[in-house]
């Protein structure tokens, strides 16, 4: 497989996941806010800007974080490389450059999503917009699952998807954790409400309720970080990433062929054997920061190993 194609597939996986997660966060926040007293509005929208690490871009341009400004910024802003529209456009650009290597169904699906989303640009419905994007994300995975051969390309796509999802879940947890525990005091029932919103944004609310009776921040963190079964938990996705990397290199489980595999393997071990209490003792924020740094490093190592040719032609 051409390095350029592997690179594109990896990023298609990442961008689709980023668009999907951003839509989830927007939507959940919007609904949560509908039931809040008006004076807490502002507090609700700032974390969303922080999640995307694009705060330096947002505040000079929009000033205050409100439903309207954050929706515009995360939904459509051309200057924001992580906005949903930009992610979908990049997914499509990447898909277009490798059209010959992806299934017709996959291309048509990505292309249709793009046309649908671009039409909603000037409409006013945040919920409907997010719904289209989330459904788009589900359809995308379905179409890929049903039409892509399980070759290297598939594994690169899955690797991109897994690493992005792990990072997004970690970020959602990190930013909200601060907001909710260390921020200005808010009502207790509102606090549990907010945690429910966080769980819903990663589609884990029902799953949580089945295992735990009450909403407790530490338990929420445990599920989002360490659960082995939920498809949006960090551990699950790092495990998926490891599987994809091993499939690409052909390494036997328990060994590694490159730095990306070593870092992924080590991270997965930590997430498997660490207890949530230990993580809290070390400081959740520090652990999550470290985790995000490791993910970034893994991404760089994948690029170095598979996509990048240092020798000039």
């Amino acid at each position: 497989m051409l390095s350029r194609i592997a690179d594109s597939l990896f990023w298609i996986g990442r961008y689709m996941e980023r668009a999907d997660n951003t839509a989830r966060i927007l939507d959940v926040n919007y609904h949560m806010l509908l039931e809040q007293p008006p004076d807490t509005y502002r507090l609700r929208w700032d974390p969303l800007v922080l999640i995307t690490s694009e705060a330096p871009l947002f505040y000079p341009k929009y000033g205050e974080a409100s439903a309207k400004t954050v929706f515009e910024f995360l939904g459509f802003d051309e200057a924001n490389p992580s906005s949903i529209l930009q992610c979908i456009m990049r997914t499509r650009e990447n898909a277009r450059t490798i059209r010959d290597r992806i299934s017709r169904e996959m291309w048509e699906d990505i292309n249709s999503l793009y046309h649908k989303v671009i039409k909603l640009r000037d409409a006013d419905g945040l919920t409907y917009f997010c719904d289209v994007v989330k459904r788009g994300g589900h359809r995308f995975h379905g179409v890929c699952e049903a039409t892509m051969p399980r070759d290297d390309g598939w594994h690169f796509l899955m690797a991109g998807s897994a690493i992005e999802r792990a990072e997004m879940t970690a970020r959602i947890l990190d930013v909200n954790y601060h907001r909710l525990l260390e921020g200005p005091p808010i009502l207790n029932e509102a606090r549990s409400h907010a945690w429910m919103a966080v769980l819903k944004s990663v589609a884990a609310f029902e799953f949580y309720k089945r295992q735990y009776t009450q909403i407790e921040p530490q338990k929420v963190a445990e599920l989002m970080l360490l659960d082995s079964r939920h498809p949006r938990s960090v551990r699950y996705n790092i495990g998926q990433l490891q599987n994809s990397l091993l499939a690409i290199s052909g390494s036997v489980p328990g060994t590694y062929a490159n730095e990306a595999e070593r870092l992924t393997g080590r991270l997965h071990e930590r997430l498997t054997y660490d207890r949530i209490e230990e993580i809290f003792d070390r400081g959740l924020h520090n652990s999550l920061t470290e985790l995000q740094q490791t993910c970034q490093e893994i991404g760089e190592q994948i690029t170095r190993t598979y996509f990048y040719y240092a020798v000039a032609s």
């Binding site: 051409l2 390095s3 350029r4 059209r99 010959d100 290597r101 690409i248 598979y306 032609s313």
Partner: peptide, 20 residues
């Protein structure tokens, strides 16, 4: 394979493509 110029390289008068 659909390739662009940057995917190919010539060495000793032989054309190669850059793969993973």
């Amino acid at each position: 394979e659909l390739v662009e110029g940057r995917d190919l390289v010539v060495s000793d008068n032989v054309v190669y493509m850059k793969t993973i």
